[in-house]
Design a binder for these strands. Structure first.
Length: 882
RNA sequence: GCCCGGGUGGCGGAACGGUAGACGCGGCGGACUCAAAAUUCGCUUCUGGUGACAGAGUGGGGGUUCGAAUCCCCCCCCGGGUACCA
């Protein structure tokens, strides 16, 4: 028998077993069994580009560990895989090289599939999907049409990055310092007709239902902040000159009386209307043009000097009739609120900065805590000692300089009162505003899902009839046509007839945002073969929600929010009954190399392929989980990989050796038929009657069961779980060395052949030791199986004759966890001064007395008075002196 | 800018408010070997001391507590997201 750990030999053998037996496939009919306990474990699907990287390895190592752990707790686990195969990188590659995005993508998918198999990930491949295949995107289109028919789709104009040289729309990512990454041309902002999904209709529910799901708190916080609910009022400001009213959203109606000017966002559609034909027109036009092309993230910077231009118009403050000058300024955002604000420089930092820069009046309407209050301030507001240097004041306080009805009222109370008053007067009303914007789903790109709409001159926008789906993505010559969406070049495809009136009509040439594809793929997995529907609601509802979703924290907002929205909307439409798709979420951290994000340009990438070739998949997977807490970023180290390889080698060698020992011991110890080489079938149960070092080893094994079970089940602490199995393996190795000496191998088999009785006597003498070792090894392999499925299957079979993945997860027995002694720490002033082994049953009083009597602490008590003694049973005694 | 994370030995990291540094890497020393590799055993936060031991120590500053890496406040640095990368 080969005593060398050889993953290249072990791993393919077990992968073959799982493939032949379709071990990881689950059928939907199995769900009809009342005893079925279905669990859905899912990692975010990969975008197939090139080969998988170590980030993928980590993601699927985590997910696979969870899937195995659940299976071994008796669950029926759905664990599928697919590919998010539409997207920009493949299209960019096509523009550069002429290679069809489909070819590059399919090639990449093949590589991903092969490597996932080589990693031994327990995937149900019968449910595989790829979003670029017509049999998938047919249903993406169908879902779009359901949204369309239910009024959740809108078409309206929106700003895009426009590259005037390439004549194409750019993704934000393609805009570098305001220039197109390919052309280098200054990017313009253009307004184009776009498709939207009305996710804002769901803002409140998306916010509220976060309370019902088991997600990391910081991810929920990010989503809450992204949705950005704020309560306030909408107030109408009249512009007499143009005979229009402008609505403003404010969270601070209490400061309405302090407004001294009015500001519009550069994108506001009325800005140019307001200055048309006036002497302001040129200056305003120049400012707007500049603001529109400026870098979006820089624009919001608080420390950036405020800029703007006067419009030469005024609006009337509805609460006091004051005339406020109008400005356009880029610190006002078109996407938030109404794109126009009332400016209250006395109580808002940004308004204050702007007022300072443009010499505008600053008015105080709330009294600060440090201002001196007159006794009767309501009747004599001017008696206030107003400290102008303290402005802007953003805190709370009583109102002043406002209105007789409100002066003196604490501003928080005045908020509601003023809102009610506005409502009475018809000048405004209570309003909730969300930061969340509608989801822009159309893209002027080739490599995406065609939008199934036909534009007809007579009938308008007509949905493609469902029985004509899919609208197949046409073949085109040039992936970068000038000025239009690339699909517009496929004239035979674009020119069609209207499904309603049969007259000539044109197909929509935009494609869908790839986030649409990935917002429902987890539903398709539940019923992936269905060619009559996107999914059977009964099947999807049975599997959903996903019990454990796992993916990168970089998706914490967009993907997760869109998928949540999809499920709610589809549930409202009536094709699904899933309020929240991801009941539990785990977000993994990034793997870096030498402290930096891996990238091809830096040349610091690590390909899993090389690791797997050199050390095997078990090592690669285990290391990916061992290198740190999986939810945090971690740095990859090649030396660390070797450490894990050494650990796995040792575990496997010890297992192989112990299995051999038992084969020879069996006829003698078990009374089994002579010459039988059948492995001990009960190797996984705790041997009885062990004492001394053997008992200690058994205790260690049960400690490891307890530790690994807790680390995996409660907190996803795979790194410490692996460490626990390492500790157990170290203990096994030490016990084994005590039995047979430190030689590389005991060569029991050879010895038996040569030595006859003497060796057998030795084996008998060591029988109890080997039983303990074998149990500990079976336990170590069993605990490590979710991380290293191949070698543990191999070793466990040798040790017990059983398939480890079919075994129930081991249970720690309390009697082996409890100790009758512990090490008491003795502290003085919180500093450790002594340790002593004491009985676990010692009372508080006994612990205190014992501690106080310790010789080592006496010098620290000398000349001091003992003020207090803290006793923490099972842990420590802390003596507090003065 | 805004939102969310993170910062602990030479390195990756461990530590329900209760022994800082588990486990692994690296380093040093020993065993085995003609030798090397592999394996195996021991030591390894820093400073002082032969040593027992003492002092310091979890990005910086303050606070709460008998006791803080952990909780609170302020600051610095690094990472993710920021709506057309996925």
């Amino acid at each position: 028998m080969d005593d060398r750990y050889d993953p290249q030999q072990i791993e393919p053998r077990w992968q073959q077993v799982w493939a032949d037996e379709r071990t990881w496939e689950v059928s939907n009919s199995a769900l009809q069994d009342a005893d079925a306990d279905p669990v859905y474990v899912l990692e975010m699907l990969p975008y197939p580009s090139g080969e998988p990287h170590v980030g993928h390895l980590k993601n699927y190592a985590i997910g696979d560990a969870v899937a195995h752990f659940k299976r071994r707790h008796g669950k029926t686990v759905l664990h599928p895989m697919g590919f998010d195969s539409f997207g920009l990188p493949a299209e960019n590659n096509a523009i550069k090289t002429g290679e069809h995005p489909r070819d590059a993508t399919e090639k990449s998918i093949k590589s991903f599939q092969r490597q996932f198999r080589e990693w031994g990930v327990s995937i149900d491949w019968s449910r595989e999907i790829a979003s670029h295949r017509p049999e998938y995107y047919r249903w993406t289109q169908w879902l779009f049409l359901q949204f369309f028919k239910n009024g959740l789709v809108e078409r309206r104009s929106a700003a895009v990055n426009w590259d005037p040289v390439d004549e194409t729309v750019l993704a934000n990512e393609q805009v570098i310092d305001g220039r197109g990454e390919r052309s280098g041309a200054l990017v313009e902002i253009r307004q184009l007709e776009q498709w939207f999904l009305r996710i804002t209709d769901y803002a409140q529910r998306l916010l509220d239902d976060l309370d019902t799901i088991d997600w990391p708190e910081h991810v929920k916080t990010m989503q809450r902040n992204w949705i950005g609910r704020s309560a306030g009022a909408e107030v109408r400001f009249r512009c007499d000159e143009l005979d229009t009213e402008y609505e403003v959203f404010t969270t601070r109606p209490d400061t309405l009386f302090g407004a001294t000017f009015f500001v519009m966002a550069p994108e506001h559609p009325d800005v140019m209307k307001l200055v048309e034909g006036t002497d302001r027109e040129d200056e305003v036009r120049a400012y707007v043009q500049k603001a529109l092309t400026a870098d979006r993230t820089e624009r919001g910077a608080a420390d950036k000097p405020k800029t703007g231009v006067a419009l030469g118009r005024e609006v009337v403050n509805p609460v006091n009739g004051e005339r406020l000058p109008m400005y356009v300024a880029d610190y006002v955002l078109i996407d938030y609120g109404t794109g126009a604000i009332m400016a209250v420089p006395g109580h808002d930092q940004r308004d204050f900065d702007f007022a300072q820069a443009y010499g505008l009046p600053v008015k105080r309407v709330i009294v600060g805590a440090n201002d001196d209050a007159p006794d009767d301030f309501a009747s004599d507001a001017n008696a206030w000692a107003l400290s102008e240097e303290a402005l802007p004041y953003v805190g709370d306080g009583p109102l002043v300089n406002s209105h007789a009805d409100f002066d003196g009222t604490p501003n928080r109370d005045a908020l509601a009162a003023i809102t009610a008053w506005l409502n009475e007067q018809g000048k405004g009303e209570e309003a909730i505003n969300f930061r969340l914007r509608d989801w822009l789903i159309s893209r002027q790109r080739y490599w995406g899902c065609p939008i199934p709409i036909i534009h007809c001159d007579s009938c308008g926008m007509v949905p493609v009839p469902e029985d004509q789906l899919p609208v197949v993505l046409p073949e085109i010559e040039d992936y970068k046509p000038k000025g239009k969406s690339p699909l517009a070049a496929a004239e035979d495809w674009v020119n069609t007839t209207c499904p309603t009136c049969a007259r000539p009509a044109l197909r929509e040439t935009d494609t869908l945002d790839t986030f649409v594809d990935s917002s429902w793929y987890f539903l398709r997995y539940t019923d992936a073969q269905n060619d009559q529907a996107a999914f059977d609601p009964a099947v999807a509802n049975r599997w959903m929600p996903i019990d454990q979703y796992i993916g990168g924290v970089e998706h914490a907002i967009l993907h997760l929010l869109y998928a949540r929205f999809f499920c709610k909307a589809l549930t409202d439409i009536g094709v699904l009954d899933v309020n929240e798709p991801f009941q539990a979420l785990f977000t993994q951290g990034m793997i870096t190399k030498d402290g930096a994000k891996m990238s091809k340009s830096k040349g610091n990438t690590v390909a899993p392929r090389e690791i797997v070739d050199k050390f095997g998949a078990d090592t690669a997977r285990t290391y990916a989980l061992f290198l740190g807490p999986p939810d945090q970023d971690a740095d990859w180290s090649d030396e660390g990989v070797e450490g894990v390889y050494r650990f796995l080698s040792r575990l496997w060698r010890l297992s192989a050796e112990a299995a051999e020992q038992m084969v020879h011991a069996a006829p003698i110890s078990e009374g089994a038929s002579a010459g039988s080489s059948a492995p001990h079938p009960a190797g996984a149960t705790t041997p009885d009657g062990c004492e001394g070092d053997d008992l200690e080893l058994i205790r260690k094994a049960h400690w490891a069961i307890d530790k690994v079970t807790g680390d995996m089940g409660r907190r996803f602490a795979f790194n410490t779980a692996v460490a626990a199995v390492m500790e157990l393996t170290n203990a096994i190795s030490a016990r084994r060395n005590a039995l047979v000496g430190n030689g590389a191998s005991s060569r029991a088999a050879e010895a038996t052949d040569e030595g006859g009785t003497f060796v057998n006597d030795q084996v008998v003498a060591n029988l109890e030791g080997w039983a303990a070792i074998r149990f500990a090894l079976a336990t170590a392999n069993s605990l490590l199986q979710p991380f290293a499925p191949h070698l543990t299957a191999d070793a466990y079979e040798r040790l017990t004759g059983c398939r480890v993945w079919e075994q129930a997860w081991p249970a720690a027995e309390q009697q082996y966890l409890e100790r009758d002694e512990f090490e008491l720490v003795v502290q003085v002033q919180g500093k450790v001064r002594d340790r002593v082994t004491v009985s676990a049953s010692a009372s508080r009083e006994e612990l205190e007395a014992l501690a106080m009597g310790r010789e080592k602490i006496q010098p620290f008590l000398e000349g001091k008075t003992v003020v207090k003694v803290i006793v923490v049973p099972g842990k420590l005694v802390n003596v507090v002196v003065r």
